[in-house]
Design a protein around this nucleic acid. Structure first.
Lengths: 252, 252
DNA sequence: TGAATAGTGTCTTTCAGACAGTATTGG
DNA sequence: CCAATACTGTCTGAAAGACACTATTCA
């Protein structure tokens, strides 16, 4: 585990001085970062928030677009999840969205500056909240699909693809898309959100039965008043992470 | 993103000297490790491989049991997955088991020595291969459940629980348990493995239909010869990661 | 009252589970 | 033939999808 440098070699010596003198200080440490794939629905299209990188002298991937993220700050952040929430709040001002970890990617080559590991999170924010989000450069929403300005910086093409796969997977057996809506929503709105993410039409009756029997949402008692018949408003239930009773029946 | 240390502060200065002088070198880096939750079936019980920690002067959690793992070696390892495979091969000699990433855990407090991030992998190895695995101390298989010598070192209780949850989740909709068997196996053997992991009996007929219609396994044409009627041998199909057509029907 | 959207009832199809049946081996 | 295990056929009940139906609002 320890490097082969003897204590008298310059590198090991310096590394020792830098820390408290324990064995762990003689080990070369990778860079540790966090990146966040933030999705929302914008103009009825699933979109992701990207940030354009600067073009300083030491800047890798100048002017390329990337998922928002940055180095873990061992002074500020208690956990990597805190770090992800900090990045998210910095970019969007939203502090309590749906967020889960996607995984970590680490290799010698993914960052030209050094061996680095990134811890990737996946966030959904309500479409009524992104309106308040600054979109002035270098930050911008991109509809997923052809519009993504690939190639992204680092290995972010790969990270974004993994995030999309996770979202589309989980739509099949969870109420995840509800987190793309305001806290209160109608069943037709929820169905519409599912249809956008799944990219196919769903049957109204089957959808309602499925959602209500799973008890993942509950009535608020309020109504959405519109130009036509008002619709009951629902919110996510306590245990909204519960799996739905079955997947949407697959086509043959 | 950069630390608040001025270039003249001792710590920043030393850190600069240690590296190439780029901006990234002035950032305090967390420790980066990899841990692997290795499962196998031993005497018809799902078991996990644990390693007992030493008791040197700087050793955290002396004599506690832990998931096998260790520091990423930026010289040896091209990726964190390579690192996990290296740890796995070191411990078991098995080089091509089922392996997937579970996620990463990072916080200020999880390692008393420093802010650290661990990248956790999840491995299944065939029960005919673990026989060849050294079990002399400090390495030992433990049946999951009461027999686990908790509390484990670091936050490994939490990591192990997450690994078990992942396994039990995926049993519901993938052929994962086939990776706990030799490369060729019979359908009754596969069913038995599912039953061990799920901890409940399954119906033979439904199980067979489910596995065969999903095309996740294929006949080898060979038979397992035993004391009674021979059974057809199967192997995992090319696309064995495909989801099964439905979950086992849940109880009411 | 009509248009539009919200929500329900009912029939059909599909498929997992129960369980009894048949098949194939060694002794 | 018997015991034991491998494998199959048939029925049933549960639930998803199709789709027509009713309900409630505004104009």
């Amino acid at each position: 585990m320890k490097t082969k440098n003897t204590p008298s070699s310059p590198k090991a010596l310096v590394a020792r001085v830098a820390g408290s003198g324990n064995a762990v200080d003689s080990i070369a440490r990778p860079l540790v970062t966090v990146d966040v794939a933030i999705f929302s629905i914008r103009d009825d299209v699933l979109s992701v928030l990207l940030v354009q990188r600067g073009q300083g002298p030491d800047e890798p991937f100048p002017l390329r677009w990337a998922l928002p993220g940055g180095f873990v700050d061992v002074k500020k952040d208690a956990t990597i999840e805190d770090c992800a929430r900090r990045k998210l709040a910095d970019k969007t001002g939203v502090t309590t969205p749906y967020m889960e970890q996607l995984g970590s990617w680490g290799s010698a080559g993914r960052d030209p500056r050094a061996w680095s590991v990134t811890n990737v999170y996946f966030a959904l924010i309500a479409s009524d909240e992104f309106c308040q989000i600054d979109e002035r450069p270098p930050q911008q929403w991109f509809p997923v699909g052809e519009a993504i300005p690939r190639p992204l910086a680092f290995d972010h093409d790969q990270l974004l693809d993994a995030a999309l796969r996770r979202l589309r997977d989980k739509v099949e057996y969870t109420v995840l898309p509800a987190s793309l809506l305001p806290r209160e929503f109608t069943l037709p709105e929820l169905q519409h959100t599912f249809e956008i993410v799944l990219n196919r039409q769903l049957d109204k009756s089957a959808f309602r039965t499925r959602m209500l029997s799973a008890k993942v949402i509950e009535e608020t008692g309020n109504f959405r008043i519109g130009p036509r018949r008002p619709a009951l408003l629902y919110r996510l239930a306590e245990d909204a992470t519960r799996k739905l009773p079955a997947t949407f029946r697959r086509a043959d």
